Amino acid sequence: MFAIVVFWVAAGLLAYTYAGYPLLVMAQARIRPRPVRRGEGLPTVTAVMAVYNGAVELASKLDNLAALDYPPHLLDIVVVCDGCGDASEEIARAHRGRPVTVIAHTQRRGKASCLNDGVAAARGELLLMMDVRQRLEPDALRRLVACLDDPAVGVAAGELRFEDPDTGFAASVDAYWRYEKAIRLAESASGSAIGVSGALYAVRRALFPEVPAGTVLDDVYVPMQVLRAGHRVVLESGAVAWDRPSSSSAQERGRKLRTLAGNFQLVALAPWLLVPGLNPAWLRFVSHKLLRLLSPWLLLLLAGASLALAWQHWFYLLAAAGLAAFVLLVALAAAAPPLARLLPVRIAAAFAHMNLFAAQALFTWLGNRRLHLW
């Protein structure tokens, strides 16, 4: 009896996490959409960017910002160098495309502290938050600003797309990201997303909270604080930032472990996120973030219960065989890279890797107190 309860609870939670919740928000977006009232206002904007040893990419990023389709006198840039040991500071000071304020620290303190410094030095009514690596489309800022013309919107985020996503391990990364974007777009269309991509989002300067030192996921902490203040967090799919996907499991592991461990940290920093009355997006936060952290352990419980019940009923035997086939499919994808291009294999590989990383993230958070240092 106990094994049966474990099986169905684990199966139910997994089904809700990966299918039920996405279908729920997609249905909400279709039945009760909340369109954004876009406008044509052109407020002042300060682009804020924290950099650690970003000399290789910083010059091209500043040129990219200078080429944005936005009036030159309405956009300035703040670059905060976080104890850089390369030429990042010199590159930022030498830039002439847009006005650049450079704040240089001799000691590494982490991205969150640098963002607080950058926002304190900002002059614009809106803040354009981003990372150094991604290339922005020329109209990205205008599209975000148009969304923020709606007084109900506090954060407008862009869409992260991958260059050359169909090769090697990148195929599974892209498959996962397409799934994730569909959920975020549905959340946005039906109310508010609960997180954005740190590669590209704009926020009202008056709403930007002080980010606790050491915070890893500023791109979730800031939107949730804006949501708590009564404003929407929306996604603008036409505002595009281009990135390079991970080319190997090891590279993606480093990125995802930091991000997933940051979710554990986020709850410790802001426990109000777990309280329905205090978190206006409690169900979405739990469904989208926390249940995914629980998923690898639910999969282990499901596998154990399936094996324990396999010889009692054909249904549980079929479930155990299905799990075994899933493991075999992922193993074959690793052994035969051409298979990774097939959609079912891409989905299976992405699901397997994300859950493996989620399991490891708990121990990463518990054991790495320097997680905030990039």
Rank of each mutant, 00 (worst) to 15 (best):
F357H: 12
L200K: 08
L141P: 00
T167Y: 10
L207D: 13
H288A: 09
A157S: 15
A213K: 07
L148M: 06
Y179L: 09
I77Y: 01
G154F: 06
A348I: 05
D86M: 04
F285I: 05
N263L: 10
R369Y: 03
V216K: 00
W177K: 07
L317D: 01
T106Q: 15
S188K: 06
P33H: 09
A112S: 12
R161I: 13
R292S: 05
R228V: 09
R369L: 08
L24R: 15
L126D: 03
N53R: 10
G168E: 08
F208N: 04
A270W: 10
A358W: 05
M354Y: 15
E57A: 12
T101V: 13
G367M: 07
Y221K: 01
R228C: 07
G20H: 10
R108S: 13
N368G: 05
A239D: 02
I183C: 10
A19W: 13
A310M: 10
A112M: 09
D76H: 01
W282S: 03
A250D: 15
G230F: 08
L75P: 00
A319W: 07
N279H: 01
I183V: 15
W272A: 12
A336N: 05
P296H: 01
V327F: 07
G277I: 11
P338Q: 02
D69L: 03
V9K: 04
L217G: 00
R204G: 09
E236I: 02
R341Y: 04
F2V: 13
A199Q: 14
M129P: 07
A358T: 07
A350C: 02
G191E: 09
G238A: 00
D117I: 06
L74Y: 02
G214V: 02
R30N: 08
F169V: 08
C81D: 07
T215R: 01
A361Q: 09
L301N: 05
S248K: 00
L269D: 10
L207I: 11
A334L: 11
T44L: 08
Q312F: 14
L14Q: 02
E159T: 13
S172A: 15
R255D: 03
M1Q: 15
V211H: 06
V203A: 15
A250F: 08
